[in-house]
């Protein structure tokens, strides 16, 4: 029984499509993510990564298909499905006139689960922002906002965290810290990550599995080391181009 639960995908995307202004931007995509994965959602700019993530988080609505989070359909029960999901879509948005702590306080009040006050300090410590917690967010650098975004995503004890281009604006030092943090959270806290990016080198030592998206279609999906074997490549960048090239030809 335990084994069956482990095999149940935490995120399942079925036959998802979306047209914007008459143009198909997502074309019947299908993939699933198992618990504990760090899953890369990779593609060039304009491939449909953010659109897909927006559909997962219900900011926009698919024309067809469905999304299941922990078995709950996002169409039928979005609040329950998203109750254990933390996310940063495109860029983290905060009330700039409030402090980091006040923002997280508001976020905690709006959560479906009970978030104790100590959790706010806890997540701020995890992202190393405890000293800046009483500063207004408008004084934060982009990197600090990204870290605060991760703190916000962590707030509700999520089982799935969705990060859209999380390395945007993060300096090399911050980038290394972020990778370490994601690996730590995946291993120790058993949090599943879905990370979209077009920065392949940054994703290489982070993700175990990936879906490659091009022109709104999933061109390849699976275990990165297995796919590397199939395409006879040694790194993620070569794998990406091999998948895209394969599709184009």
């Amino acid at each position: 029984m335990v084994q069956e639960n482990n095999e149940k995908p935490i995120l399942e995307i079925k036959n998802l499509s979306k047209k914007i202004s008459g143009q198909t931007v997502i074309d019947h995509i299908h993939f699933s993510i198992q618990k504990g994965d760090i899953y890369g959602f990779l593609g060039p700019n304009g491939a449909g990564k953010t659109t897909t993530l927006r559909m997962i988080t219900r900011l926009i609505f698919p024309d067809s298909g469905d999304i299941f989070i922990d078995g709950h359909s996002i169409k039928n029960d979005s609040v329950l499905a998203l109750s254990r999901v933390g996310s940063i879509i495109e860029n983290p948005a905060f009330y700039l006139h409030l402090t980091a702590k006040q923002n997280l306080n508001l976020s905690a009040k709006l959560a479906a689960v009970n978030v104790p006050k100590t959790r706010i300090n806890e997540v701020l410590s995890i992202v190393d922002l405890k000293e800046a917690m009483d500063n207004k967010v408008k004084t934060f650098s982009l990197g600090m906002k990204q870290r605060l975004g991760i703190a916000n995503a962590l707030l509700c004890y999520p089982s799935l965290i969705i990060l859209d281009e999380p390395t945007n604006g993060v300096d090399p030092m911050g980038l290394r810290e972020m990778k370490t943090l994601i690996k730590h959270l995946a291993e120790k806290e058993k949090i599943t990550f879905l990370i979209s990016s077009h920065m392949l080198r940054e994703m290489e030592d982070l993700c175990h599995k990936a879906a490659f998206i091009q022109g709104g279609k999933i061109v390849e999906e699976g275990d990165i080391s297995e796919l590397s074997g199939v395409y006879q490549v040694t790194n993620l960048e070569d794998l990406f181009f091999a998948c895209i090239k394969e599709k184009l030809t």
């Binding site: 988080t57 998203l82 109750s83 948005a93 009330y95 709006l110 959560a111 509700c156």
Partner: peptide, 13 residues
Amino acid sequence: NGTIKFVLLRSVS
């Protein structure tokens, strides 16, 4: 400002 998603990405219908 995008703050609408700060709210809607929580459990707010």
